[in-house]
Amino acid sequence: MKLFSPSMIAAAILLTGCGSKSVDNKTTELHAIKPADVAAYVADYKELAAKLSVQIDGKNSAIEMLDFDMDEGVIYIRYDDGIILLGYDFENEKPKNELAVVRHSDSENALMGENMQLNEQNIGTSITGYLVDKQTAGHYEFSMLFNKSLISGGNSQLVVENNSAFLSGTIGTKTYIQFKELLLDHPSVNRIVFKSVDGSVNDDINMHTGRLIRQAQYTTVMMSDGEAYSGGVDLYAAGVTKEYQSGGKLGVHAWCCEEDKDAGELGKNHSAHGAQLTYFREMLGKDLGPEFYFFTINAAPADDIHLMTQAEVEKYFYNN
């Protein structure tokens, strides 16, 4: 079994401290998730997320994604007593039998997974085996239930201060739920401030999160020390009015992949653009919306990022 590198263990220690057919894309309305199906989609997510759990040496705990590293192929998972490092095949979207645990109580000594077995179930993948303490030779029984909701939910935080809500983290289905709750629980909020949003793990639901922002008539705010990338920029675009301070970072790039190609490599009438074009026509207008979308997917490939210039920010967000 491949062992986790010292740098990956160190990262976990730090974390403990804190379709192909062509269509007329100019007019056709397309949705990855139809608006009428969003409620059922979120209900399915909640059902799956409720089943996420880990048991270590007989003690049960809920789990949630803390972070992930696609280059290293690892997901950092928070549980009650520390951080779990789970090997993950991002290309094929499935976990590996590579695992380690860093406990809050002994963050310098990682427990390493041994004899890990993966078994597919209707509600996800069960991962079972033993954790070994290399210093004491202690063995602890380990079992965890993993399913797609762990990643697709993201790890965003939406913190309310007075009439503003501060958004940070990786956005996903959890973010949509947070905005639904914000609308119900904090009707006086009228500003969404982007602190550090590194992108979306679920673009399909993210577009509906943007629609919640627009329907609520929120102002979206990028402060001089703020940053939003990829799907975070999609949400920033949803503000009925937008505020931007020089120095704030808005990063865009192509999404991946369709037919093993970045979005920028597809023809303009490719159906895979349809849902995003529908979204940006709603947010920025029938002409500027598509122009902005094609600008983003041609500005940088999926594995890179383009930071928007002041002129680009003004062109796309303050002339509509």
Rank of each mutant, 00 (worst) to 15 (best):
Y79W: 04
A272C: 15
A39K: 15
M116Y: 04
Q121N: 10
M283G: 07
R281V: 02
L158G: 01
R191Y: 00
E265N: 04
G289D: 01
M112A: 12
L167E: 00
T170R: 05
G199C: 13
T173D: 04
V23I: 14
E141D: 10
F68P: 08
K174L: 09
N206I: 03
D106N: 13
P187S: 07
A12M: 07
G82V: 07
W255T: 07
L3F: 06
Q310T: 15
S224K: 14
Y279H: 06
I84C: 03
D304C: 11
I9W: 01
L30K: 14
T16W: 11
A300I: 03
Q276N: 15
I84D: 07
Y279E: 08
Y140G: 08
S271V: 01
L145E: 09
V197E: 01
C256I: 12
L3A: 15
T175W: 05
A50T: 02
T278L: 04
K174E: 13
M223Q: 01
N147A: 05
K21A: 13
A39I: 14
N115I: 04
I205R: 00
E72K: 15
I13N: 13
N25I: 08
D234Q: 15
I205T: 00
P6L: 05
L99H: 02
T209Y: 02
S61N: 11
S126G: 06
V23Y: 08
A32K: 13
H104S: 12
T173P: 05
N190F: 01
E120G: 06
G232Y: 00
Y236R: 01
V189A: 06
I177L: 08
M207Y: 04
I151Y: 13
L182T: 10
F166S: 08
Y140S: 10
M222N: 00
N97W: 09
F317W: 05
L85N: 06
K46T: 02
E258M: 09
G210R: 07
F295Q: 10
G153A: 09
S196Y: 03
S149H: 09
E72A: 15
D260F: 02
G113A: 00
G289T: 06
Q117D: 05
G210P: 10
A216N: 01
S224A: 13
Q135T: 15
D185Y: 11
Y229C: 05
A254P: 09
R103W: 12
D80T: 14
H31Q: 08
E64T: 04
G138E: 12
E98R: 05
N97D: 02
N298K: 13
V221N: 02
G247L: 05
E93A: 06
D304I: 14
H186W: 04
A238Q: 03
F90V: 02
V74F: 10
